[in-house]
Nucleic acid binder design. Structure first.
Length: 399
RNA sequence: GGUGGGAUAGUCAAGUGGCCAACGACGGCAGACUGUAAAUCUGCUCCCUAUGGGUUCAGAGGUUCGACUCCUCUUCCCACCA
């Protein structure tokens, strides 16, 4: 029983520090029913969760199955300071109102995966906000600059002449202090958080709370491009609240290679099952597209439901495999004749008329399934089906 | 506080008086090929009803027929010294 739980917990992890402690905690749970706390921090600046986040959430859910209580830490304090990274980013200070709103949408999304009854939502503003300057200095004295510069991203930025604000040095300390205050048994984060996570361990020791958290690091999920990490700003993400059709399509658009990575980190299938699929594909017994479809179905079902997911698949086949027109297209209308390039911009299919003209010249624009090559075309009254590239559709009614 | 270096498109990065809407790389978009794949190949990649016009090279002034390039001030970053 314990072995099975351990195996499941270890799955997909990039690194675990102090695995013995995890084992002890599980033992205590299975033998004496003792629960333990698992901390994970979330920054309420971006209200949209994507699959990159769910890797972490799914791991938390696993802990919930085996006696873990989740400390769902909202970085409400750190968010009000703003993260002054890079030279181009202006300090973004969130109002308390925004934070509350973001947290709302954050948690509703998170509870699609987490068990609410085993989750405690905590805000670090509650304790960090009360610290005095003296407390802060005392905290800061635990860390040397040299040590701070060991951190990979800091040293990289330092070497490449990118600004590092002093407040950024405070981040790991504050995050580590959260673990002291919460007396966490385990903390989970991405591999990029290693330094911060370890800071929690160190500070727990310094502040003498008689335990040191185990640290579990999840790999960073690659985005749709398969290279960079999934993030909203890079636009290579699958959002938790994406439409079923989008979600399904996005999963299918990943490369075959990346698919296995997604399987490991996102699927509920056991590692053995996945290995079987993988060898079947390799032997040519299974078409990779079929396997990918199953993955897409599983993921879409998780965030919507089975029926909707199935519909998404049907719709997808219709549009792409058979290159028919999707059933749900946004509609626009306008008065009088309209220049084609302008029309495409108005229908939000192109960012500028210049871009529209370029696409037209390259044969990327279709009206009613027919390629348009004349970039000066005027549309007189009537109804048109506009298409840019393979995916963008819109209906336009000219009055 | 002192001295020196730097800021160029989504990112990185050339350009040191006119040939500059600005080399190149990455990213992105479109086309071919496909499984909407991936890889590869081709074209495009500031805005504007456009063989033309407009606005750009941190910001504000100045020199010049002409400035991304020279000068002055400002802001921000980096290095060394204190």
């Amino acid at each position: 029983m314990i072995d099975e739980a351990l195996r499941e917990i270890n799955r997909g992890c990039a690194e675990i520090i102090d695995n013995e402690r995890v084992e002890k905690l599980l033992k205590a749970y299975f033998q004496e029913g003792k629960t333990y706390t698992v901390k994970a921090g979330f920054d309420p600046t971006a209200p949209d969760l994507h699959l990159g986040h769910t890797v972490l959430l799914q791991k938390l859910a696993t802990f919930q199955k085996y006696g873990g209580r989740i400390q769902f830490l909202i970085g409400s304090f750190t968010a009000t300071i703003g993260d002054p990274t890079g030279k181009n980013t202006t300090r973004k200070v969130l109002s308390q109102e925004d934070i509350v709103k973001n947290i709302q949408s954050y948690t509703t999304q998170a509870f699609k995966i987490l068990d609410e009854s085993k989750t405690d939502i905590v805000y670090n503003n509650d304790w960090l906000g009360k610290m005095s300057a003296a407390d802060l200095i005392a905290l800061a004295s635990n860390l040397t600059v040299a040590r701070m510069l060991e951190r990979d991203d800091f040293s990289k930025r330092f070497k490449t002449n990118i600004a590092i604000a002093t407040s950024e040095f405070m981040y790991p300390l504050l995050q580590g202090y959260d673990s002291v205050y919460l007396q966490s048994d385990i903390e989970i984060g991405g591999t990029d958080q290693k330094f911060n996570l370890l800071m929690g361990r160190q500070l727990q020791k310094v502040y003498n709370i008689k335990k040191q958290q185990a640290v579990l690091m999840m790999p960073i999920l690659e985005g749709l491009d398969g290279v960079q990490k999934m993030s909203k700003s890079l636009g290579n993400y699958i959002g938790v609240s994406d439409e079923a059709n989008d979600m399904f399509g996005k999963v299918l658009s990943i490369s075959d290679e990346l698919m296995w990575r997604y399987f490991e980190l996102l699927s509920e299938k056991s590692l053995d099952e996945i290995a079987e699929l993988q060898s079947a594909v390799k032997e040519g017994e299974l078409h990779p597209k079929k396997v990918k479809e199953d993955l897409a179905l599983e993921i879409t079902t998780r965030f919507h439901n089975k029926e909707v997911a199935q519909n998404a698949k049907v719709e997808f086949d219709k549009v792409h495999s058979k290159s028919q027109i999707p059933s749900d297209i946004s509609e626009f209308s306008c008065d009088g004749t309209i220049w084609i390039a302008k029309a495409l911009v108005n229908c939000k299919m192109e960012p500028s008329t210049s871009q529209a003209r370029r696409d037209i010249k390259q044969g990327g624009v279709k009206i009613d399934q027919e390629k348009v090559l004349d970039d000066k075309l005027e549309l007189s009254s009537g109804e048109y089906l506009l298409q840019v590239g393979k995916r963008k559709f819109a209906k336009l009614k000219v009055n």
